[in-house]
Write a protein that binds this DNA or RNA. Structure first.
Lengths: 247, 247
DNA sequence: CGAGCTTTTGATCCGAGTCAATCTTCGTGG
DNA sequence: CCACGAAGATTGACTCGGATCAAAAGCTCG
């Protein structure tokens, strides 16, 4: 398992490097983290609202999402996760999990005990700062999503989500030529943008006929990146990727 | 100014204590932080999107908000701030400010140089963890707001915002008997909930005639707290205030 | 006491939701 | 290799929550 893990955690380290250089010592400490690596089917919850986890998960392959439900059963997706993300890093400091996290595609997930993460943070304050930074970037993305959901029209909302996913996947080496894997369903886009499935479908068709996206067979391509960015009102500043200036 | 600052930063320390006990040594280190304390009028920006601040601000008295604008000038408020909050603590780790922060009422704000905060974090890792924690709680609130904006009806959205403000103000000793100061305008509630000013006004009137709120003269009272919570679908878990279990 | 905000009210309109099929896709088992 | 079933994608018809527009009414403060 060890050899598997060292190669498997590559997306994790690449994600951290998008925000700050990782030194060789830090890298080897990261590679030495005890990590239980597991394959998980699509549409499985990793953790649920109300849990009090004793470990964090790292998405090593596949896609996921964080979501919350209203009392009457409506779902809001608050984040999409791509390889390298630590979707519940917050649980290291906050006992109570205020949201649920699940897979959207067949995935490989690594679980790291809280105590191991606390130890590496204690020994390498620089790494602790990088972890903090990733949660701050997550928060920045939340703010942008609030703007998206609260103040943009449906058409622009959907375009914005596609822009963000292209840039984030590009940053971890999973997009080329404005093209990437895109396994989320229209139901998931609907719950992420705060609109209905039917309407998402119509907006996607509008984006298609405007020549801004090609979306089929689980692949997304943006033949007119400038046009898609304009449609989404997308400015990547909120992703805080000075280092990995996206395509 | 020193004596002023020691009493003035009380709300700041009280806020941190809502999340974790602050030891005497930590408290005196906090009190020793170099802080430039300034009175600021209502509706002034403290920082603007695109800034690269070299200090953080602490709201010591008054109310504020964080907001973003779409390209076509629509505003989304992503957070309300109450005394004790550090609305741009993120700038300690993220160079680029992705949002603007301003006052909503006449306020007293303390400015702390980044270097001083970095120093106290280095010397007192426990305090660094508390700071991290406050940003994680902010992120949790963002997630709840996304749920609010994306998936609740206007009536429930407005009720939810009132619930949250009552609980947060209670936690810093600024609410009694489900009653607190409430200087935000209906325009601000509109931009926070993603609906129009006119509709906010109608929802407030509905909440009034349902006997759930009394809102006038800058004061909010919830005569039927259980009813208001139900209307907002409000569950305070996301505020992570195990310690200061709110009224 | 008047200017400039907010808050309120009324009338009208439209973006998006809901409902109900139908059509595709795709994995599964025969 | 194909039939079958389930899930997702699409389409059309109709409805509605909330936006927009326009005015009037209250407040606050210089």
């Amino acid at each position: 398992m060890t050899s598997l893990s060292i190669s498997a955690i590559r997306p994790f380290i690449r994600k951290l490097e998008a925000f700050r250089t990782i030194s060789d010592e830090e890298r080897s400490d990261l590679e030495a983290l005890p990590m239980q690596i597991t394959e998980i089917r699509a549409d499985q919850d990793l953790v649920r609202e109300g849990d009090r986890p004793s470990r964090c998960c790292v998405l090593l392959r596949g896609f996921g999402h964080t979501y919350k439900m209203t009392e009457d059963g409506k779902r809001q997706i608050t984040a999409f996760h791509v390889p390298g993300d630590m979707p519940d890093l917050q649980s290291l400091e906050l006992q109570y999990l205020d949201c649920s996290i699940g897979t959207c595609s067949p995935s490989v997930v690594g679980f790291i005990p809280h105590e191991a993460l606390r130890e590496i943070c204690r020994l390498r304050p620089q790494l602790a700062a990088v972890f903090w930074r990733t949660t701050l970037v997550d928060a920045s993305i939340f703010r942008e999503w609030m703007l998206n959901i609260g103040r943009r029209e449906a058409y622009n909302r959907v375009a914005h989500v596609f822009c963000e996913l292209l840039v984030r996947l590009n940053a971890v080496g999973l997009a080329r030529n404005h093209s990437c894997e895109m396994p989320f369903t229209q139901i998931e886009f609907a719950d992420a943008t705060g609109i209905s499935t039917v309407h998402v479908n119509r907006m996607i068709q509008d984006l298609r006929s405007a020549g801004l996206i090609v979306l089929r067979g689980g692949m997304l391509t943006a033949p007119d990146w400038a046009g898609l960015k304009a449609a989404g009102g997308f400015d990547p500043g909120y992703l805080h990727m000075e280092r990995a200036l996206a395509a």
